[in-house]
Each structure stands twice: as structure tokens, then as C-alpha cells.
Computed example of a mutant assay.
Amino acid sequence: MNAKKPPVPVPLLMLIGIVAISFSSIFIKWSSAPASVQGMYRLLFTSLLMLPFARPYSGAAFALRRKDWVLLGFSGMMLALHFLLWMGSLKFTSVASSTMIMALEPVFIMIGCYVLYKEKSTLSAITGLGIAIFGTVFIGWGDIGLSPDNVKGDLLSIGGTAAVAVHMMVGQRLVSRMPSYLYSLIVFISASIVFAVYNVLAGIPFFDYPPKEWGIFVLLAVVPTVFGHILFNWLMQYVSATTVSMNILGEPVGASILAFLLLGEKLNGLQWTGGLLVMAGLAVYLYAGRKKTLGIEDSLPSAS
């Protein structure tokens, strides 16, 4: 972390980032295009924005081994699966429920790294994990009282969270051997290709969408990605990873407020209880001191 100060105050930049990533769910809700098309163009347009700045990393790209390219492709496939499931979840459940479940990403990573790498966490972190999972049960319980579709959306969001956790764990290994910018660019392009193949096989059209949809595709690439996750990555040179990682608690709150104002979505008592438990559990977990497993957030954009 660099001791110098950014040209704009850190709290203001963090607020901008939280608002930006909170709009991701809203844009997805506004779109009537299939989730696979939204995901494909979001990643494709983000890649196009990144390409002009990729030249300094060309040498590192040529130095990659065959095994690295295989892992990059697998990471891209997991990222595409994440977007497919999470974006799809928003067609069935509320923004609040979906984003609160998505906030469990660090918990999934902690579990995965324990299973795969035997990395252990502190008792405080495990306690936070338990509280967050208990809160997720409350969210699902509240959604059961609404409709079966809401529960389906919750399950899709859980699947999307698991997929992005795998994506991040693979990335943890890769960014130790290559620049994070290059990793992100290649994975975004790989995921775009996965989506393209999926859309071809599913018979989903690529171009038959009104101007409104194309505008949303661009907004998804620019607002939550550039002014959200890439901004957070840039902030890592000025503040600690733990400080930036706490923004994961801001997205469900911001998205829920925006969903209430722009979509008229409301939560019942059980959903509010579950959401508060998830946020409290994550706060305990993150403040307990995250293991190096989650250090990948220092260099990789989040997926939501």
C-alpha cells in the first residue's frame, strides 16, 4: 500500500464505487435480454475498454505456459457461469435477496480454500461465517412465503456465488505468475467466448435487440465495472485490502435502496432479518482478519 494520497478523497471514491456496483442489479432488471446475452456483451465491452492499455503486458502473455492458458480458460468459464446464474436469478427474485446472497462470496472462498488448500481461518471468522449462512436461511425462508420463483432465484444466486468463488480461487494461483491486468483481460475475453458458444448452441440471437438494450449492455460494462470494481482495484495502492473489501457490504445495501426507489421492490420482515444477519456475519468475518486466500481481491475485479 502506498502512503501517498489519491487526487480525490478516498471516502468519496468509495462512495462512487459502491453506488456504481449497486446499479449492476438495476441495469439487469431493466433489461429484457437473456442473461447470457447481457453477460456476453458486458464482458466483451469491458474487454474492448481494457485492450488499448494492454500493450505493456504483451511480453507476459507470450511467456504464459500451456497450463496457464488452460487455467485461464477454466477461470473464464466459471466467470461466465457466475454471470449466467446470478443475472438469471434477478429474473426470479428481488435485487435485495440476490445481492445479499452474492455478498457471501468470501465465505464460499474460505470454505473452498479450506477444502482444497487446507487453509484455516480464525474462530472469529468462522463465527461470522455461521451468522452469515444463518441469515441466508432467513432470506430463503422469507422468499418461500412469496413464491416458488423467488426461491428459484435464491438458488440460482447461490450457484452463481459458488461459481465466482471457484473463479477467484483459480485466479489466486494465476496472478502470482502474471500481471493481474492481463489475467482479468484474458479471463473476460474467455468468458465472452464461452457465452458466445452458449448462445449459439441455445439458438439465442446476438444482434436482434432494440437500442435500449444496447445502452444497458454498455452501462453494465462501464458503470459497475469501470467506476466500481476497477476503481476499487486502483484504490488498493492507497488503502488496505481489508478497507476496500468492506465495500462488499455496501453493494446489497445500495442495491436494495436503488431497487426500492427505481423498481418499487420491498422486503418482508424475514428478508430484512436475514439481510441484517448476512451483513453482520460478513462484518465479523472481514474484521476478524481475512486470510491470504482473499488477497486475490487486491488484484481482481469482483464479478457482480
Rank of each mutant, 00 (worst) to 15 (best):
A221W: 01
A202N: 06
E119P: 06
L155K: 12
M246Q: 14
G215S: 14
L129W: 05
M169G: 11
K120Q: 14
F207N: 08
V137M: 06
I126Q: 11
T127W: 11
G135M: 00
I189Y: 08
G153W: 01
V151P: 04
S240L: 07
P224K: 00
N247G: 12
S180Q: 11
P224W: 00
P211A: 13
F195N: 12
W141G: 10
G215T: 13
E213A: 11
M178Q: 00
I139L: 04
Y198A: 10
Y198E: 11
F206C: 03
V175G: 01
F138V: 05
Q237S: 14
A132Q: 02
V166E: 04
V187K: 02
F206R: 03
V187L: 06
M246A: 07
I158Q: 10
A241E: 09
S240P: 05
V218Q: 09
G135R: 02
K212P: 09
G215N: 10
I144W: 09
T243E: 13
V200K: 13
W234Q: 14
Y183E: 07
L116W: 14
P210S: 13
G145Y: 07
G153T: 00
H167K: 04
K212E: 15
G228H: 01
T122K: 15
V137S: 11
V164E: 00
K212C: 13
L201S: 03
L185D: 10
D154H: 04
Q237T: 12
V226N: 00
D154E: 13
M178H: 08
G140A: 04
Y181D: 09
L201T: 06
E119A: 08
A241C: 02
G203N: 08
I230H: 11
V187W: 01
T242L: 12
K212Y: 15
F188L: 04
F134I: 06
T225H: 10
M178W: 05
Q172A: 14
L156W: 04
S180V: 10
F188R: 02
L201Q: 09
T225W: 05
S240D: 14
T225A: 06
A196H: 02
V164K: 02
A132V: 03
R177I: 07
L182A: 01
E119D: 15
L201P: 02
F188C: 05
V239S: 08
W214D: 04
P205N: 01
P210K: 13
G171C: 06
F232I: 05
P148L: 10
I126A: 13
G228Y: 02
L123A: 15
V223E: 01
V115M: 14
Q237W: 13
L235V: 10
Y183L: 08
I230W: 04
V218R: 04
T243F: 12
G128L: 01
L185E: 11
V170T: 08
Y238V: 07
I144N: 15
P210F: 15
S180E: 08
D154M: 04
T122C: 09
V244P: 00
I230A: 08
Q172H: 13
R173I: 03
Y209R: 02
L220Y: 00
N199E: 07
V222L: 02
F207A: 02
Y183N: 03
V175C: 00
S245T: 06
G135D: 02
N150A: 13
P224V: 03
I204D: 00
I186D: 07
M169S: 01
S240H: 10
V223L: 01
S157P: 05
K152R: 15
S121M: 11
K152L: 11
